[in-house]
Simulated assay, not measured.
Amino acid sequence: MIKVLIPILMFGLWSASCSDTGSSSHKLNEQKSQAKARTAAQTEAAEQVDLDLDYLMGHFDPAQHADFAKISSPYADRADMYMRKDAYEAFKSMHAAALKEGISLKIISAARNFDAQKGIWEAKWNGSRILSNGENAAKAYPLAKNRAIKIMEYSAMPGASRHHWGTDIDLNNLSDKWFLQGDGQKIYAWLVKNAGNFGFCQPYSVKNAERPHGYNEEKWHWSYMPVSNKLTTFARNYMKDKLITGFSGAETAVEIGVVEKYVLGINQQCQ
Score class of each variant (00 low, 15 high):
Val227Gln: 02
Ile187Leu: 10
Asp183Leu: 10
Lys230Cys: 02
Ala140Val: 14
His65Cys: 05
Asn146Ser: 15
Gln64Phe: 06
Leu264Met: 13
Met10Val: 15
Gln117Asp: 07
Ala69Asn: 04
Tyr224Thr: 03
Pro62Phe: 06
Thr232Asn: 01
Gly199Asn: 03
Ala116Pro: 01
Tyr88Met: 07
Pro203Tyr: 04
Gln271Glu: 11
Leu56Phe: 04
Asn197Trp: 07
Ala235Met: 06
Asp176Arg: 05
Cys201His: 05
Ser33Asp: 12
Ala87Gly: 10
Ile107Ala: 00
Gly134Thr: 14
Tyr141Ala: 02
Glu47Arg: 15
Ser155Ala: 14
Ile108Gln: 02
Ile108Cys: 04
Tyr55Gln: 04
Met81Leu: 07
Gly249Lys: 00
Ala97Glu: 04
Leu131Phe: 04
His163Pro: 00
Tyr262Met: 06
Met239Asp: 02
Glu47Ser: 15
Phe91Val: 00
Trp14Asn: 08
Asn133Asp: 15
Ala189Phe: 09
Gly182Pro: 08
Asn113Met: 09
Glu251Leu: 05
Gln64Lys: 15
Cys18Ser: 08
Ile71Lys: 00
Lys186Gln: 14
Lys139Met: 13
Ala16Trp: 12
Ser205Lys: 10
Ala110His: 00
Pro7Asp: 09
Gly166Pro: 02
Tyr238Pro: 02
Arg38Pro: 03
Lys261Cys: 11
Phe114Ile: 08
Leu105Glu: 00
Gly196Glu: 09
Ala37Trp: 08
Glu210Asn: 15
Leu131Tyr: 05
Val4Glu: 14
Pro203Asp: 06
Ile266Met: 07
Gln117Phe: 03
Ala90Thr: 01
Ile256Arg: 00
Ser223Gly: 07
Pro158His: 07
Ser161Asp: 03
His163Arg: 09
Ala35Trp: 12
Gly12Phe: 12
Glu135Ser: 14
Asn197Ser: 15
His95Lys: 14
Gly246Lys: 06
Ala46Ser: 15
Thr21Asp: 13
Gly134Val: 05
Asp54Thr: 12
Met239His: 01
Gln64Arg: 14
Ala235Ile: 03
Lys106Cys: 05
Ala35Gln: 15
Val227Trp: 00
Ala66Tyr: 10
Ala41Asp: 10
Pro62Asn: 11
Ser33Ile: 09
Lys36Thr: 12
Phe234His: 05
Tyr204Ala: 05
Leu99Asp: 07
Lys118Tyr: 01
Gly166Tyr: 01
Lys186Asn: 13
Ser15Cys: 10
Val4Trp: 10
Gly22Val: 12
Glu255Tyr: 05
Arg129Gly: 04
Gly58His: 01
Glu255Phe: 06
Ser72His: 10
